[in-house]
Design a protein around this nucleic acid. Structure first.
Lengths: 130, 130, 130, 130
DNA sequence: GTGGTCTAGACCACC
DNA sequence: GTGGTCTAGACCACA
């Protein structure tokens, strides 16, 4: 039982994670055009400035590229996307292990529990849980 | 790439989760006395009232029991604690599967990735990653 | 749903009611000697001064009589005791009717409910309820 | 003549009883909107937090339901309200029997006394008797 | 010292 | 405006 409580990340960082996720998952494909800042700001229900900031940062990371008039596009550098996906997955796995360890699970027990859980609940509907 | 952003849970709920976790993990053992309201309020850096509320709710759930002047104690109902641990683990696993699925992983790929990650990083130090 | 909340009666008045009740019920019989102030103060867990005041007031009402050396005695005036009993019963009945009326019961419904309740629960154990 | 004196229930519990009573009596009808926390706090002359607590607890019991911005409403579950009314009436009747028994009345004598009292005093004005 | 209650007053999200 | 959360600090009964 440690002491400090969670911190709220800035909204633009949260959005960046969402977009990174979509790129890593292939939901946004390499070279694909992404919606306009205004559209995405509406989707995420945030101020266009906030959206702009998120997209700019993603551009600095090389995940997005903007072409003056034509709009913004997902990078075509598949190695970069692969690296992104790997890093995000590592972060997720590490967080998972940390939480399960906090509940007293060893790595082997986590595996067992995970497998049992996959059998109980189907694979497909999980997106809706929570 | 869905729309909704973070949930801001009330502090007292966050605290409840921390304590639940500690009980599930056996870090707080059945029948053990927990620190006083005022002490825990200092530990968590919240107002004693907020702490009181969190502990009251946990008492209502049967995880804690208070005795007038002697203090508060963890329940000795091990079945209840077992159920708690199972439910928290399910929630954690489900969240994990959802996030990994969002990154494009199938259940099998998650397992592979998890195992590889366990080999790379040791088992023990993971609590510090984060 | 009215506005003001209950008031706490002074302790000595509460004690007076208890003693009146005992006299009305015949638990303390006419002419019977009552325990000393000090004893009763212990029984009721109050300060002897408070007890003294309660007994003095009861004396002024004529329910108790003190004889210098011999102690305090319950009055032998059975008419007075009868009147006391009747008045206390009336107060109790009125309070009962008021509360039941507040719950939406008519006098007839109260009677029905009362009779049903008497059948369900025995007569004797009621002293222990509540 | 037993020993223990009055019970000092917390204010929020006293308020809960008042509101429960109003609901049981149909004074607050199923589905009806109750006044805002702040209004009721003024009516009962307590702090809004105390009022909030009382209403929260009633919500937990299922008697009230709150809707974000629209206010709080009495449950429409009439069975629940019926159960509430029955339980409160039982409590009241039991207390009545206990008090009358303490005055030396048998169940039959209580009935007689009750009936006589109803004839003497009218049915309607009783709410005002204090 | 413990848990529990209460007040006063602030801030937030929602619409 | 609504319900909800949080803080700061007081007081109480128990033993």
């Amino acid at each position: 039982m440690d002491k400090k409580l969670e911190d709220n990340m800035p909204i633009y960082v949260q959005i960046m994670n969402r977009v990174r996720e979509a790129i890593a998952a292939g939901e946004l494909r390499p070279g694909e055009r992404v919606p306009s800042v205004r559209e995405m700001a509406q989707q995420f229900e945030v101020n266009p400035n906030t959206m702009q900031r998120a997209l700019n940062e993603l551009e600095r990371e090389g995940l997005l590229e903007s072409e003056r008039t034509a709009g913004r596009f997902v990078t075509e550098d598949k190695a970069l996307i692969g690296k992104l996906k790997k890093e995000m997955a590592e972060t997720t796995v590490d967080a998972f292990r940390r939480e399960m360890a906090a509940l007293g699970f060893s790595d082997e027990e986590m595996l067992d529990f995970f497998r049992k859980r996959c059998q109980v609940t189907g694979g497909g509907q999980l997106e809706r849980i929570g």
